[in-house]
């Protein structure tokens, strides 16, 4: 059969087909992106662009208050969101995906149940947990009291010591459905003959998991980890729902996106646009930089394993 691309479109016709998407993309994505890059290099007086200041906005971001305190603190909280999600998805998530894989019956049902929280709006998830953890009528405290753990019950979101952990756990609770599903698909794509061969060689189920299945899953774990990182760095609706735009109590749940949002739209500072653009660029550079470094590092580890 002739597989040559005989149906090729003449370029003028192709450009015509391309036009609507290209126009929309140029106006509402490319143009804002290009201008945004310059915003951080100017000082601003409200909405009016003032003078070219070079890196001054970045210097101000790292050396003047409140940014010098809030930026590292918010970044640390994002890192904790990432760590929490990684721990949960690579322990509970991986274990559940593995258990589900060795189980034909009801697999689809469990997959759907586990993915539910991931598919619900993160803002709804955040508000839902703020209600569940309410000190007035919250079912969580009520359940703790019902089993005699009165001492554990507390205003979870009002206490700076627990509020951040609530954000971390709620975020992980919602996110884990995604890694679970992906790990499940990756396990399904593995050749069953490999595991059978290990079984015939007398490997125990634990040995088979650690020495056969896990190394084969590594590429997928790496890919998912990068996505988890990007997601954790951009986390916005859950922290917003649980701690408001100021990251209450006392900034305990502040994250980068909230810092950006406050600086750009609620700070009232005349140079709000200059500083907030610097925040956005720092965030973007961190996301892209670490994602690339992580991917390269992971490829090297992977090569050593196989």
């Amino acid at each position: 059969m002739n597989r040559r691309r005989t149906a090729a479109l003449p370029t003028p016709v192709a450009l015509l087909f391309l036009l609507p998407a290209a126009a929309l993309f140029a106006v509402f994505v490319l143009y804002p992106m290009a201008t945004a890059l310059t915003y951080s290099l100017f000082s601003w007086r409200g909405t009016a662009q003032d003078a070219f200041v070079g890196p001054a906005n970045f210097v101000a971001l790292f050396t003047t208050e409140p940014y010098a305190t809030q930026l590292p603190r918010a970044f640390g909280h994002n890192a904790l969101l990432f760590a929490g999600a990684m721990v949960v998805q690579n322990s509970v998530g991986l274990l559940l995906a593995y258990a589900l894989h060795h189980r034909g019956r009801l697999r689809r049902l469990f997959q759907v149940l586990y993915t539910m929280p991931y598919l619900v709006s993160p803002l709804v998830v955040g508000y839902l947990w703020s209600l569940l953890l309410s000190p007035l009528f919250g079912p969580v405290n009520a359940a703790l009291r019902a089993v005699g753990l009165d001492a554990v019950a507390r205003p979870w979101l009002g206490d700076p010591d627990t509020a951040l952990w609530v954000v971390v756990l709620v975020t992980a609770w919602q996110w884990v459905g995604f890694p679970l599903l992906v790990y499940g698909a990756a396990l399904g794509a593995l050749d069953p003959a490999i595991e059978e061969a290990a079984m015939l060689d007398g490997a125990s189920s634990r040995q088979r998991f650690w020495h056969v299945t896990l190394p084969l899953l590594m590429p997928v774990i790496g890919t998912v980890s990068v996505l988890t990182f990007i997601f954790s760095m951009e986390a916005f609706p859950i922290p917003y729902a649980l701690g408001g735009s100021s990251g209450s109590p006392a900034g305990a749940t502040d994250v980068m996106s909230l810092l950006f949002y406050r600086t750009a739209f609620h700070s009232g500072a005349s140079n709000a646009i200059g500083i907030s653009s610097a925040v956005a660029i720092v965030l973007f550079v961190v996301i892209v930089g670490i994602s690339v470094l992580f991917t390269q590092w992971f490829r090297r580890v992977e090569r050593r394993l196989t």
């Binding site: 993309f25 106006v27 509402f28 994505v29 143009y31 804002p32 992106m33 201008t35 945004a36 890059l37 915003y39 909405t47 951009e234 996106s257 950006f260 750009a264 646009i273 907030s276 653009s277 925040v279 956005a280 660029i281 965030l283 973007f284 996301i287 892209v288």
Partner: peptide, 17 residues
């Protein structure tokens, strides 16, 4: 390349646009 779109970076220009 737009798959890695920095939404926080774009939002202010979009607002003015």
């Amino acid at each position: 390349s737009g798959l890695m779109m920095p939404v926080f970076l774009m939002i202010v220009p979009i607002f003015y646009l």
